[in-house]
Design a binder for these strands. Structure first.
Lengths: 211, 211
DNA sequence: TAGATTGTTAATCGATTAACAATC
DNA sequence: TAGATTGTTAATCGATTAACAATC
């Protein structure tokens, strides 16, 4: 269980809102010095109460009568989200999506080091994509066991996703970002975030129809 | 406001779960004939109550003492999510992410027709990507006004995202799938789904740290 | 000091789960 | 018929918002 400043459980919805706060403070930095939860709420489309309660899980960042110092809070969020720490990541599956992520600059800007790529296609194993060698997925377990790796990004077809996630689990991976359109069958102590592109566009499609 | 079978409001969380139900029924089809909400709940990691209540917003699909017929419910979800209808989509921004989406087969499998691409880079305007011509973003408004277009996918840098979404709004787009790491400033009657990859991996990074 | 604004607790709202009559 | 399972209403749980004492 994930605990906040006083040992209380932090709701997952709050954790998932944290990067959004970071985005706002990053944007506001160098524009102004401070702002209140009321003002930030107007900018974000959230209530001032929610902002104060969300942030209070992580620390006492504000000051009565003043508000939040932007530079300071941005720095605190940088630490909380480990943006200032190098985090080693790997990608499994260098098809369409995996290949695009290889070139995704935002990862390195946020402190994520892409260290290895894996695939099962003999025609690309051994080649380099964006100067990173594509390894055989057969070597995945051995690689993760012997190289510090925090997060694995799964970008394989859905038919292969559970086999890959099983290998990652056994190898001691710490977290998984899953792009395969399937729910991974993993114990709930290993954090998983899903990016189901098709689910999003289908929900959109439904909302349009009924509008 | 989006209304269900008896005119009641359908919560957004329920709409966003709908594609997931579709995935399960698609997967179960040809494996078995029927299943109960209890059994489906075990498979999905959800409560039987939630499944029955979620589905009841859209219709009476089950039968007492029997459960849900898989083929029938899959077909019903296909209609509800318009998977059987052609939906015209366009992509704005053919950088890293936009280009990958151009080759994303799952879109056409779910009934989405990618009809046009837009960018502002003179060196790619006029060229073809995956046999679709890249148009000048200056022609975006004119294109959307004169060609039936339901959904626009924004894959431009965050600095350009709000300008693009403003043009789309004025042109009468029906829904937006946004990949830019910024919150679009749009009236709330136009449905938007965000895919913030960096937010997801940062949340994961936090969860790992505190584990 | 007076005004502003925090962090936190209490009240409210909305979503999830439990219970059950209806009925296949 | 008896057992199973639905759709729906009521109870519970969790998240959001409102209120306010503390204090810069």
């Amino acid at each position: 269980m994930i605990k906040g400043k006083d040992g209380s459980k932090i709701p997952r919805v709050v954790i998932e809102r944290l990067p959004r706060y970071y985005r706002y403070f990053d944007w506001l930095d160098n524009q102004m010095e401070k702002l209140s939860s009321k003002r930030l709420g107007e900018l974000m489309g959230a209530s001032a109460s929610q902002i104060r309660l969300d942030l209070s899980y992580f620390g006492d960042f504000g000051q009565q009568g003043y508000g939040y110092n932007i530079k300071k809070l941005k720095q605190d969020l940088t630490n909380i989200l480990r943006i200032n720490t190098q985090t080693n990541i790997i990608i499994i599956g260098v098809g369409n999506v995996g290949r695009a992520l290889t070139r995704y600059r935002a990862f390195s800007r946020a402190g994520f080091n892409l260290n290895a790529l894996f695939d099962n296609d003999p025609s690309i194993i051994g080649k380099k994509i964006n100067s990173i060698k594509v390894r055989d997925v057969k070597d995945l377990k051995n690689y993760v066991e012997n190289n510090d790796t925090s997060i694995a990004i799964i970008a394989v077809p859905k038919e292969a996703a559970n086999e890959v996630s099983g290998i990652l689990l056994k190898s001691g991976i710490k977290g998984i970002l899953n792009f395969a359109p399937i729910d991974l069958n993993l114990p709930k102590n290993i954090p998983v975030e899903n990016i189901h592109i098709i689910d999003k566009i289908l929900a959109l499609s439904f909302m349009i129809k009924k509008q």
